[in-house]
Amino acid sequence: MSQPSNWPLPAGSSRVVLPLELTEHLAQHPLSRHLYPLAYGHYLAARGHGVERHQHTDNLLIFCHRGRGHYRVESEFGSHSGSLTAGQLLLLPAGLAHAYRADSSSPWSIYWTHFRGTIAPSCMDILGLQPPHFVLTLQNWRSLLPSVTDLLNLQHQRWQRHRAVRAATLLQNLIAQLPDLASHAQHPQDFDLLALERFMQDNSHRHLDLADIADVAGLSRFHFAKKFKAITGTSPMRYFNELKIKLACQQLDSSTDSIRTIAQGLGFDDPYYFSRLFKKVMGIAPSSYRDSHQQHI
């Protein structure tokens, strides 16, 4: 692994490097092999902290919660430099040469982890990043502190395999929360998503195309589709169709209306197309959905 820095630890700081036997176990265990820590820690007011790596064999997250630091990353897009301030997270993927250091006048305080796993190469995509952008700005990041504290507290216990797996699941949980905390900060909205959802709900009985929805948002179709996917993770039309299928499920649950009637009420002139779309979203046909639900009432 890319060794953590040998920055001398002052009081209140911590650094944990998992033994090789445990990381090999984590690489095979079904609960941890997807993503697991190699090392992690917390550096307070890390004056003089800095690292330069020409070879980087794992992935590194650095979250700054106080002060300031600076970084440089070498990618296929060239050399990219920037600063990291309180509330920001830096992801340095495996394979990219890099350097980082605490600011000399306002040194950062950071949580950090080196990690690997089968999904580790996908973390840039998971967090909505792409070179040359390696930084997330998080909102309400303090909601992560209980899990961070649990992870750090494991160092005070004797390392055993089950505790290493626990550390991996805590890290997985932390990373899973990051897109929600970063979404609004990373993708400032050019439209009111809640208002747009209400428009879709109010017009669920109609056939709308992308131009209709983009017009409500006041954007061109291309710009709207791009912004909408950045915020929600899906396309506007798929979002609208999935909303319709959700409403169809409610009607199948609560009424005796025919599938054709439900489809027409949701703007689908072709009930066969509606059934195919329903099965694509829900995994079963509308008739099977209704039968399976009624059996459990």
Score class of each variant (00 low, 15 high):
Asp212His: 15
Pro188Ile: 05
Thr137Gln: 14
Arg206Phe: 01
Arg238Trp: 08
Val135Arg: 07
Arg166Tyr: 11
Leu20Gln: 08
Leu208Asp: 08
Pro188Trp: 09
Thr256Ala: 14
Leu96Thr: 01
Leu22Ala: 07
Ser147Ile: 12
Gln139Pro: 00
Gly87Gln: 07
Ala248Pro: 06
His184Asn: 11
Ser32Met: 07
Leu31Gln: 15
Ile175Gln: 05
Ile284Ala: 06
Pro30Lys: 07
Val16Glu: 15
Ile175Phe: 10
Leu193Cys: 04
His205Leu: 05
Ala176Thr: 13
Ala94Val: 03
Thr113Ile: 13
Leu181Met: 06
Gly233Tyr: 03
Glu76Cys: 02
Val216Lys: 12
Ser204Lys: 14
His42Asp: 09
Ser14Gln: 14
Leu20Pro: 00
Ile62Trp: 08
Arg206Leu: 12
Gly41Ile: 13
Ala285Trp: 07
Thr118Ser: 15
Ala102Leu: 08
Gln55Glu: 09
Leu44Pro: 00
Gln155Met: 11
Val281Ile: 15
Ala94Thr: 07
Pro10Arg: 14
Leu145Lys: 03
Leu91Trp: 00
His34Met: 12
Ser204Trp: 07
Tyr289Phe: 14
Gln295Cys: 03
Gly218Val: 08
His207Ile: 05
Leu92Ala: 11
Arg206Asp: 00
His133Met: 10
Leu145Glu: 10
Ala97Phe: 09
Ser292His: 14
Lys229Trp: 06
Tyr272Pro: 00
Gly82Leu: 10
Ile126Pro: 00
Arg66Gln: 13
Lys280Asn: 05
Leu178Trp: 02
Asp192Phe: 04
Arg47Gln: 15
Leu136His: 05
Leu90Thr: 05
Gln294Arg: 15
Ser287Asp: 08
Leu193Ile: 13
Arg198Ile: 11
Leu174Ser: 06
Gln88Ala: 12
Ala168Cys: 02
Ala120Arg: 08
Gln189Trp: 04
Ala225Arg: 12
Val281Arg: 07
Leu44Ile: 13
His56Gly: 06
Ile213Pro: 05
His133Ala: 10
Ser183Glu: 05
Leu138Met: 10
Gln3Ile: 08
Trp159Met: 06
Glu76Thr: 13
Gly218Trp: 12
Phe278Asn: 00
Glu76Tyr: 12
Gln201Phe: 15
Gln157Arg: 13
His80Gln: 13
Leu174Thr: 02
Leu84Trp: 12
Ala27Thr: 03
Gly117Phe: 03
Lys244Gly: 04
Ile245Lys: 07
Thr261Cys: 04
Leu266Gln: 12
Pro271Asn: 06
Phe115Arg: 01
